[in-house]
Design a protein around this nucleic acid. Structure first.
Length: 505
RNA sequence: GGCCUUAUGGUCAAGGGGUUAAGACGCCACCCUCUCAAGGUGGAAUCACGAGUUCGAAUCUCGUUAAGGCUACCA
């Protein structure tokens, strides 16, 4: 028999990462077995209607490459695939259940059905046929409830959690058909899964508690229930250390949020595939086709998994580094908007530095923030590894200043100049590079080496920053501000004047 | 409260009676490097607790505890 799985989201307007993982597993399972993956929209709650919400579902599935074989947008032999369009079907089946004695009309007021904390008090369960007819003919609003056996137990077998048995007396007479004539999720999913020939129901484990009631429904209809595969919940860690179902307070939890932050779709899919499933091998990086090939119910884990943004970062970095550079460059453009203009002009160069250094595209901005934001911290000039203190750093900078002032700011030339100078002074190159890089960036961590940073900043800005750094160091050392020789700039007198002016501030 | 489920390092997790209890992320150290990053090498860190079964328990059983879910005319 052909395997058929379904993804049955409620159109809420955004795709929670947990839902996407459910969709992914349903897709992988179906495709692994050469079967069909069906999309069904569960919109039986009119109050929850959100404009454009189904489009979010379509676009998510498309971007994630979880192509469905049947669904509202692509059609299929079991439509309609939108539950609000199947109203008549549910009514028909609900009434069949009433007739067979597995369900009953209930005319109770929706607000007063509580019976000390447990479900409905079953007031209408034993209404006489006459009373029901009378209420119906009077046009009294009603719901249809499932008639749960009062005694005995119900058992079902889940492919991952095993056999589960519950006492029927712990089950309530749940509503099947609501006052507005629409079915509840609990009823619709049973009818639809059967009518759509779903062979394996893959869903979150929050439905385990309801499954016995579904089981009873299948039995009442005389249908063979589909196999179930319940999935553990994806959790988030709260500030107080506790964990709860992953939600907005834990950070970005929708697929779109993550995309906006600069995570790659393939990386997200790869990461969540390993949340609650393990391939029984040491492979971690999987293409979608590889996932299809390796996916197996045996590897599904029963316990909940905490969503770890750090590990997602790692996956994303792996995928970013594999991108060909042109693709990376193009994809990164939206993320450099707020950075200073020089970066635009030199993005061909800078993007190369960025690609190997970021976890996600939104890391680009902080990485290059030093271009616009320069706040000297003289303590950074003290560096143990290079055996540098403020005095030495200052002396090096003073010597290198005129050299830089009279050279062309190209990466190769700068590197050559610096290397030559270090050699000439018999200085380890790191000892020279460190103060120069700190002087122009004021950061210990930068997207590249000293020469790259000089190039990105440009000559004027670089010299200005070095001058300011020397002055700051001089102040620390109890010496007067730095003033370069007037012949320092051999080519741009105006810039030199501007520089002098800026120092006076 | 009742019912259901789960429990291996900080996180994802393998292992299902005898193992030095894998691997990955993260963390730390070292190497490499002009700084980072990347890469390489190494390290710290785990069987929730208590009984039982057994020659032997992370592994089986029971209990406890903790966590999560359900208990809607939401899905």
């Amino acid at each position: 028999m052909e395997v058929r799985t379904r993804f049955a989201p409620s159109p809420t307007g955004y795709m929670h990462i947990g839902n996407l993982r459910t969709a992914l597993f349903a897709f992988l399972f179906a495709k692994h077995h050469g079967g069909k993956f069906i999309l069904r929209i569960e919109d039986t709650d009119q109050k929850r209607y959100v404009e454009g919400a189904t489009d979010v579902i379509y676009s998510t599935l498309k971007i994630a490459h979880l192509k469905h074989d049947e669904g509202p947008d692509v059609g299929g032999d079991y439509g309609p695939y939108v539950q609000s369009e199947r109203k008549d079907i549910y009514q028909k089946y609900a009434k069949m259940l009433v007739e067979s004695g597995h369900a009953y009309y209930c005319f109770c007021d929706p607000d007063e059905k509580e019976d000390q904390g447990f479900g409905y008090n079953r007031h209408c369960r034993n209404l006489s046929k006459e009373e029901v007819e009378k209420n119906l003919s009077e046009g009294k609003p009603y719901v249809i409830r499932q008639k749960i056996p009062l005694t005995g137990t119900t058992t079902f077998h889940d492919e991952v959690y095993g056999t589960i048995t519950v006492e029927n007396e712990s089950l309530d007479d749940q509503v099947l058909l609501k006052r507005d004539g629409l079915p509840t999720y609990n009823f619709a999913n049973v009818v639809d899964d059967h009518l759509m020939n779903i062979t394996h129901v893959i869903r979150g484990k929050e439905y385990i508690s309801s499954t016995p009631k579904y089981q009873l429904l299948y039995e009442a209809f005389g249908w063979t229930p589909p196999k179930t595969i319940h999935l553990s919940t994806i959790m988030g860690r709260n500030e107080d250390g506790s964990v709860s179902k992953l939600s907005k307070r834990h950070g970005s939890v929708s697929f779109n949020n993550l995309l906006e932050e600069g995570y790659l779709s393939d990386a997200i899919v790869n990461y969540i595939s390993l949340l609650g499933w393990n391939p029984k091998s040491e492979q971690e990086i999987f293409t979608l086709d590889e996932l299809i090939k390796h996916f197996d119910v045996d590897g599904i884990v029963k316990s909940d998994a905490i969503f770890d943004y750090k590990k997602l970062d790692w996956f994303n970095a792996q995928y970013i580094q594999k991108l060909d550079h042109e693709t990376f460059k193009k994809a990164s453009m939206p993320y450099i908007k707020n950075l200073p203009k020089p970066l635009y002009d030199k993005w061909d160069f800078a993007s190369t530095l960025a690609q190997s250094r970021i976890n996600k595209f939104s890391d680009i901005e902080p990485l290059f923030a030093f271009l616009g934001d320069f706040k000297i911290d003289t303590s950074l000039f003290e560096n143990k590894k290079n055996k540098l203190d403020k005095l030495q750093s200052r002396n090096i900078l003073v010597k290198i200043f005129p050299l830089l002032a009279s050279t062309e700011f190209e990466v190769d030339k700068l590197n050559n100049l610096l290397a030559k100078y270090a050699e000439q002074e018999q200085m380890k190159i790191g000892k020279l590079m460190w103060p120069v890089r700190i002087a122009v960036t004021a950061h210990t961590v930068t997207p590249g080496g000293a020469a790259e940073m000089l190039y990105l900043l440009g000559k004027l800005e670089s010299l200005k920053r070095i001058g300011e750094s020397i002055t700051a160091l001089n102040i620390d050392l109890g010496e007067p501000p730095f003033t370069p020789e007037s012949n320092t700039f051999d080519e741009d007198e105006a810039a030199f004047m501007e520089y002098l002016l800026s120092l006076k501030k």
